[in-house]
Amino acid sequence: MSYAYLFKYIIIGDTGVGKSCLLLQFTDKRFQPVHDLTIGVEFGARMITIDGKPIKLQIWDTAGQEAFRSITRSYYRGAAGALLVYDITRRETFNHLTTWLEDARQHSNSNMVIMLIGNKSDLDNRREVRREEGEAFAREHGLVFMETSAKTAINVEDAFINTAKVIYEKIQEGVFDINNEANGIKIGPQHSPTSPSGLTGTGGQGNTQGGGCC
């Protein structure tokens, strides 16, 4: 419904790391052990609140297999945030992070906030990638890092919301050009200064135009 901002996210990472499950956990608060494998891109959305402002997250969940990357890539640049996911129980998914990251950096706008997610933290007994490794990788590449479990929901909310917070801060700092939809940010219909809404506070600081909303 009404939102101050809309952020577009993309979830990327190897096949089978739990991208769709993370999305489902975040949007529907449930875990589905058996689900369809993603073909192309699937879509989700949820409303969150940051700094008292309703923010709509529009999430594009991509297929992990390389054959779909032509599609995946086409979505990078329209995204404000990316969750780059690996599976802590499969070393190779961690090893592929560099490729994913290069890909993302290359095809996204430079301000895209990337959150590194080590998923399946509930399977600690099968862990192949230590937490410290994930942290180190994130540090090295300037990412935010978090271990999550789509199954138990641990940190799933935080992963999405923290990413949104970073984006939000960047907006406050004026880093993002919020009037350029290519950055994956949209100003809510009722939050542009021209159509103020008393209900949810006055959104859209820093912006002088009522951006590209429909």
Partner: peptide, 18 residues
């Protein structure tokens, strides 16, 4: 093809200006 497609489809996917 893809690099072009990517930028292009993005463009279509809502941000076609870039």
């Amino acid at each position: 093809i893809r690099r072009q497609s990517s930028s292009a489809s993005i463009a279509t996917a809502g941000k076609r200006k870039t």
